[in-house]
Design a protein around this nucleic acid. Structure first.
Lengths: 128, 128
DNA sequence: TTCACCACTTAGAATTATTCTAATTCTTAT
DNA sequence: ATAAGAATTAGAATAATTCTAAGTGGTGAA
């Protein structure tokens, strides 16, 4: 029988939804894998410290977990939604400007997502 | 008499210490400005939403506040200490790779700070 | 100068995500 | 089978932050 750690890892890797610990817990429960939320937290912490998953913290929201595959995030300033994007040549540019050994980086670019732009734009008709 | 919001803003701007709400509260108290911690939180939120200060969240640590002046952060993976750094041409590179209107970004590069490298390096003599 | 109005502040309770504790249940090798 | 060790658990605890509802203070009109 599969270990919890593997189930949790799979859930994170298979999803592109940047899931929270709660969401992962719920998803596993829905597919018949009952375990304590603390177990999810424990294993996520373990997987993260082993460098097998990423932990993304967005202000005002619970932490989210993600694949390691090199990519960056657009964060909507209105609704907080994360979208993947991959900026090229970033590592090169960063490393070229310092003598420190850079281990990794986390880039969050904020913008207004298309949905928010459409629906939540106040006073759009009178804007210049 | 100066308003609390101004005192709080000044404290953030004058310090290069990336202070937490608690630290700002303590600093103000030490200089004779007594106010509730909630007031500090309220005003920091206000200043942040007005785009007058930055809010930096480092995993496992309380949020820190910072000047707006364009710069990035090195975060020590061991001790969590923040160090300012300014990568050049970053805005240009990011904007050149997307059609979205990018509002701002937050880049945290992780490394091992010199202090940790010196003191907390395990088994350094046998490393390759 | 009184009064009503408003913004700001406050103490303390509440909330929320996460971690801790201590007990229990699995694994696994012998 | 069984002891040792690891993983899991329920529930308590923690910590940062926000909320609530009441209090304070200044301002300007009457």
């Amino acid at each position: 029988m599969k270990k919890n750690a593997d189930l949790i890892l799979e859930t994170v890797l298979q999803s592109s939804a940047h899931m929270t610990a709660e969401e992962i817990h719920a998803a596993l429960r829905d597919s018949g894998h009952r375990m304590a939320l603390a177990t999810v937290y424990n294993n996520l912490a373990q997987l993260h410290s082993e460098g097998r998953i990423r932990k993304v913290c967005v202000e005002g929201h619970p932490d989210r977990y993600d694949k390691m595959i090199r990519h960056d995030h657009l964060v909507c300033r209105r609704c907080g939604k994360l979208t993947d994007i991959c900026f090229q040549d970033l590592t090169k540019l960063l490393q070229s400007q310092t003598d420190e050994e850079l281990l990794s980086y986390d880039l969050q670019v904020s913008y207004i997502c298309p949905a928010c732009r459409r629906t939540a734009h106040p006073a759009s008709t009178t804007d210049p």
